[in-house]
Every structure is written in C-alpha cells, then in structure tokens.
Design a protein around this nucleic acid. Structure first.
Lengths: 152, 152
DNA sequence: CGCATTCACTTAACATGTTAAGTATCTCCC
DNA sequence: GGGAGATACTTAACATGTTAAGTGAATGCG
C-alpha cells in the first residue's frame, strides 16, 4: 500500500492545518473558534439566513451549528427569530456586537491571509484553489451516485 | 472581505471532506474511524514506534492518540510495552489481529483511491499533492519563526 | 548525591464532528 | 379536515480536536 503519509487525505489535512495554525492564535485572542468565525463571516455577507442554508454556507453539520448558534446567541453576537410564514424555520442574523467583533478581528485576519498569499504566490494560490474545486466536483458526482444506489 | 466560501481554509476543508466522504462508509463497516485507520496504517509500515513518533506520523495530537491507543489496545488491534532503556517511553506495534483487520479493509480502500485517481486524473493528483506540500513548506517556516519570537 | 528541569506521556475540560433519534411544524392527498 | 409523510431544526451519544494541567521517569548540574 502507498506510503500513507503521501495519501491525498493526509496531504489535505496537513495543508489545512498549516494554514489554520496561522489564524488560530488571532481568533483565540478574540475568544472565537474557527467555526464561530466561519459563521460570523457567513452572516456578515447577508441580511438573514435560515439555519439550514447557513449550515451549507459555513460547511457545518446541523448539530454543530445548532450548538454554536446557541452559544453565539448567548454572547449576543447573533440574533434569531422564527420565520412568520413557516414556524419551523429560524432566521439568523449577525448583531451589532457581532459586527463590531468582526471589525476588530478582520484586519489581523486579512494581514495573515496576505502574508500566506505572498509566501506561496498569488498565482499558485489561485491554481491550487482551482484544483481543489475541480477535485470536489469530480467527487461530488461520485458521492451522489453512491447515495442514490444505497437509498433503498 | 473576500467571499469566505473561496478562502483557502474553506477550499481545503471542502476538498478533504469530499475525499473522506468516499472512505468513511467502508471504514465504518469495519468498525474503524478515520483516525484509527490512520494509526493502523502508520503502524503497518514499521516494527514498533514510540507514541510521540506515532503522533507525528499519523498527524494526531498527543491527547487524541492517547485515547485512541487505549481503545485500540482494548480491542487487541495493537500492542504496547514500555521501553527498557527509558521507562517513560511506550513502544507501540500492530497486533496480528490488527494486521488481519487491515488486510480486510485495504482492498476496498485501494479501490476507492483508484477510483478517485481515475476521476480526477493521476497527473493532476500528483500536481495537487505537490502544491499542497509546497504550501505546507511555505507556512512551516512562518509558523516556526512566530514561535521563536513568542517563546520568551 | 539531590533537586530543579526537562521529557514522554496521560487526564481533564471544553468545543466540534458525526450519526441517530426526537420534536414541532407544515404539506399533501384522500 | 385529518392523518401520513416530509421538513427544519434540536438533542443525545460517542469520538476526536485543542489547550492546559498532571504524573512519573530521566537528566543535568551544583
């Protein structure tokens, strides 16, 4: 079997960890985890979203999101209200405090991203992202077909 | 701020998830998690290792590894004995049962990897891995220098 | 020697990942 | 209009990620 340190999942894991290692200290100083930051960023770009849509955007599973929203709400960083038309749906939005917190984190975060881009090269970075997207595409189809055949 | 769905950490996370989604069902059938599988694979390649070295190889943090080794040992998939020369060190090796289990998982795992390679393209896959390695390199230095300056 | 420091792990505590089950609401069709 | 099924979450349970603290064994040095 191929040396597992060179397997694709390991390469991806290590690369991601190398990147996140840069961001974590700054986020930590602001009392945010990586996932909480993802949620705030996702919310900053829109007015309000349903939880399910937010889960898709922030790439979190429902249960994780549910817990994190509970905590963020307790910290007054987000707001929730149930949709009028459909009582099952809960509409989430970022609060003023949330916006303020984001504003205090964003500069450092942007600086780190810029440094990463500088070191790795903007062009290479774009290429890498494109390849990652293509990989995701290739496998999306595969996953879908498997589900279909296993769904009986 | 850049659309966060196109941030590097998100791209890496999604790509990795797309890949792992292919493997998880098979591992699950054999009662293994992704990390347990990583450990067995790492152990299969060598006689015995110290826990610290194994953590480095399987890319797991000490505490995670500690727990998983406890469980794998309870299932008789690995063996442990403390080193003679240094009582702090614990030498880990895969057991016969562990080897047997690996043999039963490996074919499916290899088939999935082959299918991924076929879909994405062997050459592109190699390129991608190279870029991921380069990214890791770029940031390794950065992380190291930060540590050095913060170590006082 | 003896004791402070370092080292190799392990435990603890809290947050998330992952799957399954639960709850309330809505939809649709008879 | 009412009940079966679908939908949108939430809760639960267990495993791992992450940081900090704990434990026992080695090391170095006065």
């Amino acid at each position: 079997m191929r040396d597992f340190s060179r397997s694709l999942p390991m390469s991806l894991l290590r690369a991601r960890e190398a990147v996140m290692r840069q961001f974590r200290p700054s986020l930590r100083e602001h009392g945010l985890t990586e996932q909480q930051w993802r949620i705030l960023r996702a919310l900053a770009a829109i007015e309000t979203v349903e939880v399910t849509e937010l889960a898709r955007t922030a790439f979190l599973l429902g249960p994780s999101l549910s817990r994190i929203l509970r905590d963020l709400e307790a910290r007054n960083l987000i707001e929730r209200k149930t949709a009028k038309a459909d009582q099952r749906r809960s509409m989430v939005s970022i609060s003023k405090e949330g916006v303020k917190l984001m504003a205090s984190v964003a500069p450092t975060s942007e600086a780190i991203y810029a440094e990463i881009t500088r070191r790795f090269g903007a062009r290479k970075l774009a290429e890498l992202q494109e390849m990652l997207g293509a990989l995701e595409q290739s496998l999306a189809e595969l996953g879908a077909s498997e589900e279909a055949s296993a769904e009986e």
